[in-house]
Simulated assay, not measured.
Amino acid sequence: MGTTIENLILAVITTSRDKVGGGSPIFYAVDEQELQSLSFTLEKILDGIAHEVNPNLFIIVRH
Rank of each mutant, 00 (worst) to 15 (best):
R17T: 01
E43Q: 15
S37A: 12
I13Y: 08
T4G: 09
G21V: 11
P25L: 01
S16F: 02
G23V: 07
E6T: 01
I26W: 05
D31S: 14
A29R: 00
G21E: 10
L42V: 00
E34L: 07
A11T: 10
I26Y: 04
S24R: 03
D18E: 09
D18I: 01
L38Y: 09
L35D: 14
Y28H: 04
N7K: 15
L10Q: 05
I13Q: 03
T15L: 08
S39C: 14
V30L: 03
T14S: 08
L38F: 12
S16P: 00
L10I: 09
G21T: 11
I26K: 09
G22R: 02
A29I: 14
D18A: 15
E6P: 00
L38M: 13
S16M: 11
K44R: 10
R17P: 06
D31I: 15
T15F: 08
I13H: 06
D31Q: 13
N7Q: 15
T14Q: 06
Y28S: 01
I5G: 03
T41E: 07
P25N: 00
D31L: 15
L8T: 14
E34Q: 13
L35G: 04
T41Q: 10
F40K: 15
I26G: 12
I5M: 04
S39L: 10
I5F: 02
L38P: 06
N7D: 15
Y28M: 05
I9H: 04
K44Y: 08
I9R: 08
T41H: 12
N7F: 11
Q36D: 06
T3N: 09
N7G: 14
G22P: 06
T14K: 00
T4M: 11
T3P: 00
T3M: 01
L35V: 15
A11P: 11
G21Y: 14
S37M: 03
D31V: 14
L8H: 13
D18M: 00
A11M: 13
R17N: 05
I5S: 03
T14W: 07
K19D: 10
S24C: 03
T15Q: 14
P25W: 06
A29V: 09
L42W: 03
S16D: 03
L42D: 13
L38C: 06
A11I: 06
L10A: 09
T3I: 07
G23L: 03
T15S: 08
L35I: 09
T3A: 00
S24E: 13
F40Y: 15
N7V: 07
G22V: 02
R17K: 15
E6G: 00
A11F: 13
Y28R: 02
G23R: 02
S16R: 12
Y28D: 04
S16E: 03
E34D: 03
I13A: 12
F40I: 11
L35F: 01
L38A: 10
L38N: 11
V20P: 01
S39E: 04
F40R: 14
I9Y: 12
Q33C: 07
D31H: 15
I13L: 12
T14D: 01
S37F: 04
E32Q: 07
E34M: 01
F40Q: 03
